[in-house]
Design a protein around this nucleic acid. Structure first.
Lengths: 123, 123
DNA sequence: CCTTGATGGTTTCCGATGGATACCAAGTTG
DNA sequence: CAACTTGGTATCCATCGGAAACCATCAAGG
């Protein structure tokens, strides 16, 4: 089987890929792989991420066994998110993606400018 | 700088990550890294991918310099998509993601079942 | 005392996005 | 001439994501 089953719609792998190929999940796993963090600190660190989507994404990651959620009855309540061993294996993979983006960003931006310029003069 | 700038909203890296952390882009790059393919064959191979989103995704990938689009004036017209050297470097990275999903899918599914069971008995 | 602030969310509203479907032009085949 | 192929675009509608408001709890400050 040269082409694995991620390409068939009913394969569970597809669902895993859905979760994993998410911008916010990539950034959150990258952060949590360094150290456990709390809700509002994650929120402040990842610019542009709303509370709602942060809560949703963290719950998905928790359901998938990639992060743990620990509540401490302090005041105000403290909720700490930490990465699991399974999540750590994924974090190493997705971090390559972030590194690729940071490395090749100038080249991609140059291609975009060329593409846009070509289309502008065609119009 | 321990935490790179992908976490700031205005960094171009974020835009690159947006494109790259996309389920369909991952699957398409995986296919095109093996061989050039035409529009409808991609559409048939990637189950669940609509024509509209396929066209949008391919145009984004072309704009980013990751794939090339070649039109041959046959009848009916033939349009072939091929990966670029830049796209090849990315394909190797995102393929790790697909492989991770296929490898760890059973473990993730088990975590999901445990999570759902725990929530069901709590309710 | 009572407002302000922090904690970690949920709810509401609205604009953007994605999927399904129909449609298009060109031309070959039945 | 009708149907089917190619590679799309246009339209409609459901869902999704972001912005902002709201919630409870308690601590500190005026």
């Amino acid at each position: 089987m040269l082409i694995p089953d991620a390409y068939s719609a009913d394969c569970p792998t597809r669902q895993v890929l859905d979760r994993v190929a998410d911008k916010w999940a990539v950034l959150l796993l990258g952060l949590l792989s360094r150290e456990p963090m709390r809700f509002n600190r994650l929120r402040r660190t990842v610019e542009g991420l709303s509370q709602k989507v942060l809560a949703q994404t963290l719950r998905s990651l928790e359901r998938d066994g990639l992060v743990t959620r620990s509540v401490f009855p302090t005041v105000p309540v403290t909720v700490e998110y930490a990465i699991t061993p399974l999540g750590m294996t994924l974090a190493q993979t997705v971090d390559q993606l972030r590194i690729w983006a940071e490395t090749h960003m100038p080249e991609v931006a140059a291609c975009q400018r060329r593409y846009d310029a070509a289309r502008a003069e065609a119009a």
